[in-house]
């Protein structure tokens, strides 16, 4: 969550300062993708008159390991990433990937019929189609002029 607070005391918000420094470091060294403070998975939301598409980057997670639940107008995305345990004696050089359980709750602009939700994973990108229910769609009202 990025908050814009003009004139705010920077030292009053040490986390914001840290994040700003991290942003600057990231910019200097390239667009690093593994900002650890970010929530997992990163989500994009696409909108059209007939519905929404939610895409999320979940590299290394299979579709059957993702738990999607729709309750009225909330979508919950849950799952877990388990670290690959190398057998035998190993030594680590870099650990940039993150592991463990994840969960995101997304509030939708309308209640979705769970039977019409479609989800797929392709090359580590999850895509969830949430069609807008007929009852929620705007309806044109015919106006008859009385003379």
């Amino acid at each position: 969550m990025v908050r814009y607070a003009p004139g705010a005391d920077l030292w009053g918000e040490p986390l914001a300062t840290l994040r700003r420094i991290q942003d600057e470091v990231n910019r200097a060294f390239g667009d690093q993708r593994w900002t650890p403070a970010a929530e997992f998975p990163p989500v994009n939301i696409w909108r059209a008159p007939d519905g929404l598409i939610i895409t999320a980057e979940i590299p290394g997670v299979k579709l059957d390991a993702v738990d999607l639940t729709v309750h009225q107008n909330t979508l919950t995305l849950k799952g877990s990433r388990s670290p690959e345990a190398p057998g035998g004696e190993t030594s680590w050089h870099r650990r940039e990937r993150t592991y463990g359980p994840f969960s995101r709750v997304i509030e939708l602009p309308y209640a979705v019929d769970p039977d019409h939700v479609k989800a797929s994973v392709q090359h580590g990108v999850l895509s969830v189609e949430l069609p807008r229910p007929e009852t929620d769609k705007p309806r044109k009202i015919n106006i008859t002029a009385k003379s």
Binding site: R33, I58, P86, T90
Partner: peptide, 21 residues
């Protein structure tokens, strides 16, 4: 982007895993 990477080795080989969604 620079993809996130895990790198480890044992006595026989070096292992890399990179996230390329």
């Amino acid at each position: 982007f620079l993809p996130a990477a895990d790198i480890y080795e044992n006595k026989d080989a070096l292992f890399l895993s990179l996230e390329l969604p």
